[in-house]
Design a protein around this nucleic acid. Structure first.
Lengths: 163, 163
DNA sequence: CCTGTTAATGCGAATTATTCGCAAATGTCA
DNA sequence: TGACATTTGCGAATAATTCGCATTAACAGG
């Protein structure tokens, strides 16, 4: 009975990001969009919210608030951490951003992608892998629908190891 | 800044947990099993670990640590909160327990069920609904397998509203 | 049944991600 | 432009979880 022990730095993984072939994040297209989404929700378009969205749209990985804050400060050096938190919360509630809660680590964030995808943590390397395709989301939609529900969002993290 | 390293025991979770026919989990059937699982992982069987498993097996909701701690104290009034945390962490790593992280609330725990299920939060009532069936898990297994991975555990919370 | 080794516990303090309270600033709409 | 509700910045507060360390106890091997 051998015991495989692996140490994973859960606090600040380098988090190289593997993405499926169909990767398309378009910042420029996003901008007019997000303003409309905010306004439709009765919320204001502030430079702080725009900065967070800009940075998050440019980023390929899933930054936590600390990382995001550092980057956003280069656009707006007066923004506060509390505002980054509040902004992310607002953006999550209007469906522009997804919050990822990994185990025992600060939450990570990503722009809500046009094509849904889910996440897998490689337990050996700590790597965060994006699962391409909509198969998982499709089944969730079907199953939720059978229970009489309509999915607003979902949070999925699979912990797995290479076979 | 301090670096927090966490070690995860990557043992494969037990294939079969012997549990009663329905959702009511039978502690007595569980006990020999969990002892073996712990020993196989090179861990000790302590009364504290047994108590936590007993209480968690008797419960059919998803208690958080505070609730669990109160109940466990009735079996063992000297157990400490820290031990409950440590125990749950150990049991999770060994595949006996699943940790559920809902939005902005303390984590909740459940025994790893023999038939996998996932969770849905009813956004209107706040109710936590168990999704029966293995459809979601089946797809995840297939998709992970296509990426060359074997799932150790997964965490899924769907946020939805009644249709 | 002992005994040594070492993992596990209990306690309370420490950590730290996140939120809060409030005064000041600012987006929005008429 | 002016009114006013929302949002921000700041620093303090909160609260879930972990940590340090002395003490206890599980269990393997006599």
């Amino acid at each position: 009975m051998q015991l495989i022990m692996t140490c994973i730095n859960l606090r600040k993984p380098p988090c190289s990001l593997k993405v499926g072939p169909d990767k398309m994040v378009n910042t420029l297209n996003n901008e007019p969009d997000f303003k409309q989404v905010l306004r439709d929700a009765g919320l204001r378009v502030t430079p702080q919210r725009a900065s967070v969205i800009t940075i998050l749209s440019e980023t390929d990985d899933h930054p936590n608030v600390e990382e995001l804050y550092e980057k956003v400060r280069k656009l707006d050096d007066t923004i506060s951490v509390a505002t980054v938190y509040r902004t992310l919360s607002v953006l999550e509630n209007v469906g522009l951003v997804r919050k990822l809660v990994l185990n025992d680590a600060p939450a990570r964030y990503e722009m809500m992608p046009p094509t849904n995808h889910d996440h897998l943590v490689d337990l050996e390397s700590g790597e965060l892998v994006e699962i391409p395709g909509t198969d998982i989301a499709d089944v969730m939609n079907r199953v939720a629908s059978e229970l009489g529900y309509e999915i607003v969002s979902h949070h999925t993290v699979i912990r797995a190891r290479k076979r």
